[in-house]
Amino acid sequence: MMDLQIVSQISSFLAALVLLTAFGMLVQKRVYGLIHLFAWQGLFLSLNTAVVGFVANKHHLYISSVLTLSLKVVLLPYILHVLINRLKIRKEVETVVNIPMTMMIGIALVIFSYHLTAPIRQLSTLITRSTLAVALATVMLGLLMMITRRHAVTQIIGFLALENGLFFAATSATYGMPLVVELGVALDVLIAAFIFGIFFFHIHTTFDTLDVEQMAKLKEEN
């Protein structure tokens, strides 16, 4: 069916955009720009979920899509905006070291993800199966971002991007987890958002900066 093919192409295109934003975040230096990129990623993800829901005729995916839209495109970026305005770090620029190297590692991670998910792609009959590798790559890139960056806000955005990847994986491998699980995960993310909000204030008042490099007291002494 012609229709189905176009829709599946759209889904792949959106997956590519999700991956693109993940790479963008990896090298974005401005805190402000990062939040925008994160919101865009959420938007692509939400659209993709709706498209998959339409193709596969799974109505519960529409709910997930709306949930993603409200949580990851509206609410979380809004909370982050408010926080960085309050903490007056809106214009902060982070020094990101070794961008070419990070990009190379990122590319290697994408290839690794394709390799790792190969057996699953063979077993799956879903039209979204090819995007599973992209989803795992998004998870890995989020992880990479958390390792390479030293700013508290950046680490949190990396964490949220990682969570985006997990949600994406659930959509592409199985047309979404059961609704009770998705709602529960969303609730956990929401609680986490409040906690990191409080954390930003604590770190900022204690260390006078959100650079987590400052926090290196707890080490093994010899």
Binding site: Q155, F199, H202, F207, M215
Partner: peptide
Amino acid sequence: YRTPTAIEAAWKYFI
């Protein structure tokens, strides 16, 4: 306790 080390520990735990 909001001491610098406590905040560091909690942040590590969280992340």
